[in-house]
Amino acid sequence: MSIGNSPEDERPFEDVSEEARPPIGRALQQARIAAGLTVDDVSSATRVRIAIIHAIESDDFAACGGDVYARGHIRTLARAVHLDPAPLIEQFDATHGGRPAPTPAAPLFEAERIRPERRGPNWTAAMVAAIVAVVGFVGFTAFKGGGGTQDVADGTAPTTSAPATPTPKSDNTADETPEPSDSAIAAAPQDKVTVQVSATDGKSWISAKDHSGRLLFDGLLKQGDSKTFQDSEKINLVLGDAGAIQLYVNGKKIEDDWQPGAVERLTYTKGDPQAG
């Protein structure tokens, strides 16, 4: 008869309860040390910051920024130190309120699929339509206004000349045919000064102003073009190439012998033509 412990009393006592399981951080730390790894080694391998690894090994998960990130860090660190992450994740969920239920994605995608597409205004089409309208208007205006090259500028108010009424020719003038410019000036009103400028021998720049100094015209006359100006008192002219210009003042042709290229400054009134 032996005195002592029975064989059953000699068997080691194994505590497999939840309380005997080491904390998550302690389990990760022990596995890291057993693998011969430092915190710097694990940080370089997982790209998890050293401060977060130290906090997790101390069972402080606040630095992770939330339970979702804490689970991810635990899973990453466990794989780095050759541990099965599943038991550690279950242990974390048991001590932190359980794993949150996943949000069903089907209703969200269904709503996105049936949502009508909102289309913005087609600015390209609107711009093209506007350009077409402008081009059409400009072409129509040019077509309507392209009837001739002779303009009349009045220093006081624009006037519209009535169509000339043909008069019977007398016997002694039957063979005489007046020049077109003479016919255009013949009906000039007596209470105004009328000046016609024609580029007969080339092109010339001209400028015309009324008695108050208001600019009536400033531009280039090509050969064959003419301009007619009227004012209640006087017309001031500047001819860039006087030799290329023929003037009619109050129905009379000016016979001055201007040289080609000469610049002339002239003033004409309601009386007989006078060079200013």
Rank of each mutant, 00 (worst) to 15 (best):
L83R: 12
L83I: 05
L83W: 02
D84I: 02
D84L: 01
A86L: 05
L88S: 04
L88P: 10
I89A: 05
I89Q: 05
I89N: 01
E90F: 00
E90V: 12
E90C: 06
Q91T: 03
F92K: 04
D93S: 08
D93Y: 02
D93N: 12
A94Q: 12
A94C: 09
G97M: 06
G97P: 04
G97R: 04
R99I: 11
P100A: 08
A101P: 05
P102N: 04
P102T: 10
T103P: 03
P104I: 09
A105P: 05
P107R: 00
P107K: 01
L108F: 11
F109C: 07
E110K: 02
A111V: 04
A111M: 10
A111G: 09
A111Q: 12
E112C: 13
E112P: 00
R113K: 11
R113T: 08
I114M: 07
P116M: 05
E117F: 03
R118V: 01
R119H: 14
R119Q: 14
G120Y: 00
G120V: 01
P121F: 06
P121R: 09
N122G: 05
W123C: 02
T124G: 13
T124C: 04
T124R: 12
T124I: 11
A125N: 06
A125E: 09
A125D: 05
A126D: 10
A126R: 12
M127W: 08
A129C: 01
A130C: 10
A130F: 06
A130M: 10
V132W: 01
V132H: 01
V134Q: 09
V135C: 11
V135H: 03
G136V: 05
G136W: 01
F137E: 06
V138T: 09
V138N: 07
G139K: 00
T141V: 15
A142I: 15
F143N: 03
G146R: 02
G146K: 01
T149M: 08
T149E: 12
Q150K: 14
D151W: 13
D151V: 10
V152T: 15
A153H: 13
A153F: 14
D154L: 00
D154E: 00
D154S: 04
G155I: 00
G155Y: 00
G155W: 01
G155V: 05
G155L: 00
T156I: 07
T159I: 10
T160D: 04
T160I: 10
T160E: 11
T160G: 09
T160K: 05
S161M: 07
S161A: 14
S161F: 05
A162L: 13
P163D: 11
A164S: 15
T165W: 02
P166Y: 06
P166D: 09
T167A: 14
T167H: 12
T167V: 15
P168L: 14
T173Y: 07
T173R: 11
T173I: 12
D175A: 13
D175P: 02
P178E: 07
E179G: 15
E179F: 03
S181T: 13
S181Q: 11
S181V: 07
